[in-house]
Amino acid sequence: MRCFPFVIAITWALLAVLGPFVLALEPDAIDLKKILFTPDMSSWLGYDDLGRPIWDRLVMGAQTSFIVAMWVTIISVLLGTFIGSVSAYFGGWLDLLVVRIIDVFLAVPGILLAIAFAGIMGPGIENVVIALSVVGWVGYARLSRAQILALKHREHVQAAVSLGTGPFTIIRRHLLPLISAPLIVEATFGIAGVVIAEAGLSFLGLGVQPPEASWGSMIRDGTAYMLIAPHMVIAPGIAMMLAVLSVNLLGDKLRDKFDVRLKQQ
């Protein structure tokens, strides 16, 4: 039970990265005789409304969500940390401006802004990544800003300043390593959020386009056939829930491991 999150998360990653190459998948193969077939020996998760094997599509969906989650998290962390730490370190009008911008972004519900962006830019995996990154950087900016503000008056930073080290070197070498732990924890929870958001956009038809598979679009396709083929909705939902749950549990573990404040209590 204790290694459950690791096992699930690693399975998700392996399926996403290697699955399409190692397993002989036919996610787009249409078999008209098997439309809406419930799970059987030939395809253990059954077939969808076009007669495509659900397991194969599930693996492709794992790939979609993994790719989007990784890209969005990497872009958001880099962008957010850069903006937050530079703003906190230099302070002044720059910081005031950044704080206002963060406030504005926080005032718009994240998923709503992502929906609007994705809707306006048009569907496609790149636009999903852009839309979710536009929303995603804010949390990391706020976190790194708060952390750097608390750290920038430390002695070792003063020492670096008096040695003539440039501000960007100080941020990179003397401050960022100190705030990496909370950022990693936040990013782990962020991955779970992105998986849900990507599936949500695809559910609304704003994510990847057919015949590409996404857990969200699989759920949407399934809702029309729920009474006769509930497996179409249940299978992708469970896959997504397992991925999100495992990443959230990993985040909990990391937080317990890293967070000094929790340890002291």
Binding site: G200, I219, M240
Partner: peptide, 12 residues
């Protein structure tokens, strides 16, 4: 961990 676009269809 259960998004509302899955929870909703399940409840339905």
């Amino acid at each position: 961990s259960i998004p509302n676009f899955w929870m909703g269809p399940l409840l339905i």
